[in-house]
């Protein structure tokens, strides 16, 4: 697919500045951020959005990708550690490679840590989005390859949690190696007389 490869021409970047309710918008002036970055090189479209991760949010972005022919996406919202997988999937559904996404962390690393300095936070947000746009214009699509998985599982520890995990896996048809350092499984639980809330014996 053409959109999956690097375009011959300049990148076509879409930027979405998420309000996250008031989590970001309570401190950062989101419309101002999107207005300022819309003039950046390669940015074809920039807007603020209520909840980028919500179904309507994702639909709006997907629609833009298709209609405007966007090939790089910058989401300025929460930490990529939270929603990067969400937006990567969204890109794939829209026909883009999952790796032409860049996130600017406006929540955990901006609005939430500069709550008393809205002006400074907004200026920083603009910088963070600029950094993300610079990175996005240089992103390349990446391809995953298949790796085979061994279906056996190692469970370390034969206490009640390890026993339960091992039994559930084994009952589901997976081979399990259950390793216990003491001479018997049972762990701390085996030493208890009665257990709450059922008041029955432990073994």
């Amino acid at each position: 697919m053409k959109k999956n490869s690097t375009n011959d021409g300049a990148p076509r970047i879409g930027v979405y500045v998420c309000h996250c309710g008031l989590n970001i918008a309570g401190t950062v002036d989101c419309p101002k951020v999107s207005a300022e970055v819309s003039a950046l090189e390669n940015v074809v479209h920039a807007r603020d959005i209520q909840y980028a991760c919500s179904e309507p949010g994702q639909q709006a972005i997907t629609k833009d990708i298709v209609e405007l022919g966007l090939d790089r996406i910058v989401i300025a919202s929460c930490s990529p550690r939270l929603h990067e997988p969400t937006f990567r999937q969204m890109l794939e559904r829209a026909g883009l490679n999952a790796f032409v996404l860049e996130m600017a962390n406006l929540r955990e690393q901006c609005s939430w840590v500069h709550m008393k300095e809205p002006g400074e936070a907004t200026a920083k947000a603009v910088d963070l989005v600029r950094m993300a746009v610079a990175r996005a214009s240089r992103l390349e699509p990446l391809q995953s390859r298949k790796i085979s998985l061994n279906k056996r599982t190692l469970v370390i520890g034969g206490g009640i949690a390890g026993i339960q995990a091992a039994l559930d896996l084994a009952d589901n048809g997976y081979e399990v190696v259950l390793v216990e350092k003491s001479p018997s499984i049972g762990g701390n639980m085996a030493r208890l007389d009665k257990t709450f809330p059922t008041m029955d014996c432990s073994i």
């Binding site: 896996l169 997976y174 190696v177 259950l178 216990e180 350092k181 003491s182 001479p183 018997s184």
Partner: peptide
């Protein structure tokens, strides 16, 4: 857990 055909139990064992 001790009897299950799919479970290989190694006691007195450490990684």
């Amino acid at each position: 857990a001790g009897r299950h055909p799919n479970i290989k139990l190694l006691t007195l064992s450490e990684i």
